[in-house]
Every structure is written in C-alpha cells, then in structure tokens.
Amino acid sequence: MSIPSDLKYTATHEWVRRETDGTMTVGITHHAQEQLGDIVFVETPAVGKAFKRDQECGVVESVKAASDIYAPVGGEVTAANAVLRDTPEAINQDPYGAWMFKLRPADPAEWDGLLDAAAYAKVAESEAH
C-alpha cells in the first residue's frame, strides 16, 4: 500500500499536498482506488465554488461502487483536473499524480488537522480487515 510521507490525508481517503503558493491539491489515495476498482467516471467540483471542510464536492465511480469526495479543508476551488473527464482510469494508474482539484484554503491552519502518513496507514489498515 503506497502512502507517500510528504502528503497529508483524511479518514475519507483523500490525499492533500500543500503547494508553495498556499493552495492545496487534492486526490484520492492508492488504497481508495484499489477498493473502488476500475474507475469509470470522475466528477470534479466547479472552479470558483467554495466548500466547507468535509463538505461533498465530487464523486468517483467504478462499475460496482460510487464514492463521494469531501473537501479536506474549507476553501475555494481554484482548479479542477480536466484530464480525468476522458481518462478516469488515470486515478487507478497513478493515484498521487492524478489530482482531482486544487483549493485555496479559507483557514490555512486546517492543514494541521489532517492525518499524516502514519495515521492514515492505520485508517487504511483497519478497513482492509
């Protein structure tokens, strides 16, 4: 199970990377895409829309499951990965490369509330059994 240590995570299986300009890039973890299986559709949030932390802001669908994506921190969407519209399988192939959207956090301190790699590993492990 791949859980890069330079990222932060949520209990709902999003990964978050803090960029140098202060925005945060969000995707779903290796564990999440593995649980879903072949991903056939991704719905990303509209650029410009604001979300509260833990609010639903997207969907990832496989043939036999669908999973909501939640905003890991509150903020405004600054970009969405258009590539996923035509190649949703990119998430299966490279979950940490195939980012879904970027947020400008309303409260940058929310970063500190996210899980680190070790804490997320425990979450993922507990679900695997």
Binding site: V63, K64, A65
Partner: peptide, 12 residues
C-alpha cells in the same frame, strides 16, 4: 451506469 442506482448508491 449502475453506480447511479439504489443497489449501489443507496440513499444517494
């Protein structure tokens, strides 16, 4: 497109 349907998506 079965992920839209009740047997997968349940309350959503």
């Amino acid at each position: 497109l079965q992920a839209r349907e009740q047997h997968i998506r349940r309350s959503k």
